[in-house]
């Protein structure tokens, strides 16, 4: 395919140089570090992130105006956080002019679509200052995560320290040190169905995208994509925010990222195509083509 990783200027393996950030970061602390830098430098004046929600491990979109607030949003929550729901409000009652936003590939698509076709999004397009995308294979509703952790892994949600999908398994780490792994096969039926038509793995439309795949534990794979992203990334590098290694020198490297991206896209492309003949002489809608 060759386009599975999207357009990018550079790709590196990186992690934040801040011990504080790394303490609770999912991987290399890229999102938290880059937003913290951009906030300090006035490149953004706030960022929409997945903050802590009302229930354990349920994210809630929030607007972080300080590094402390960014810290509270570290870590992956494997269920939906509708970050784009705040995209207009930040320019209204929050009074932001330069907005940062983090999200999954589909959320990056929403941001870009909103910028080009701002239906009901007056004054939003020019205020997106930094969009950071995170790799995403699939997502889950909150109820799914509850069931996976409480029923399948047999752990109480509030006592979970970290969750991770990697190396073919769903990992649940307890505060008390226990580790439970579930084969991914178990998780499939809990995926949100909308993810099955998603053709983007590494947030192709973000300014900077990042994820764990391709880099060793504690490190992240980073794609620097747009001019804006490149500019901010270079400045953050010069300011000593990140440690990096050329992606070619790390294992498993881009090869694995490409492989997983291709798998996701071809599997989901099939789902998209099967929708055309879903009924008897009737199709289900395909959002990638204009209606006849």
């Amino acid at each position: 395919m060759g386009t599975e990783l999207g357009v990018y200027k550079t790709c590196v393996s990186a992690r934040s140089t801040s011990k504080e950030i790394l303490k609770k970061a999912q991987d290399g602390g890229i999102v938290t570090q880059l937003f913290a830098y951009a906030l300090d430098e006035g490149i953004i004046d706030g960022a929409i992130v997945a903050g802590p929600g009302p229930e354990p491990w349920r994210p809630m979109p929030m607007v972080a105006l300080t590094s402390e607030e960014l810290m509270a949003s570290r870590g992956t929550r494997y269920n939906l956080s509708p970050n784009v729901a705040l995209i207009k409000e930040v320019t209204r009652s929050y009074g932001l002019d330069k907005v940062g936003i983090v999200g999954t590939p589909c959320q990056m698509q929403a941001v870009r679509k909103g910028q080009l076709y701002p239906a009901g999004l007056r004054d939003v397009p020019d205020k997106i200052a930094l969009a950071i995308g995170i790799f995403c294979m699939e997502n889950f509703p909150y109820q799914s995560i509850k069931q996976l952790v409480e029923d399948h892994a047999g752990m109480a949600l509030p006592a979970v320290k970290k969750m991770e999908i990697g190396k073919g398994k769903f990992w649940v780490y307890g505060e008390r040190g226990q580790v439970v792994t579930l084969p991914l096969k178990v998780t499939h039926k809990y995926e949100q169905p909308g993810c099955h038509v998603c053709l983007d793995y590494v947030a192709n439309l973000a300014d900077v995208s990042t994820g764990s795949v391709g880099s060793p534990d504690g490190w992240s794979t980073v794609f620097v994509r747009s001019k804006k992203g490149d500019d901010i990334w270079s400045k953050a590098m010069a300011a000593g925010c990140f440690e990096t290694k050329p992606i070619e020198q790390v294992k498993p490297g881009l090869e694995l990222v490409s492989k997983l991206a291709n798998e996701k896209i071809s599997k989901n492309q099939k789902t998209v195509e099967s929708r055309a003949t879903f009924g008897v002489n009737k199709a289900l809608r395909n959002p990638y083509v204009s209606p006849k």
């Binding site: 004046d45 706030g46 105006l65 409000e89 209204r92 009652s93 929050y94 009074g95 932001l96």
Partner: peptide
């Protein structure tokens, strides 16, 4: 919504 200090 209340307006934030920054918005004010």
């Amino acid at each position: 919504k209340a307006c934030s200090e920054r918005a004010v």
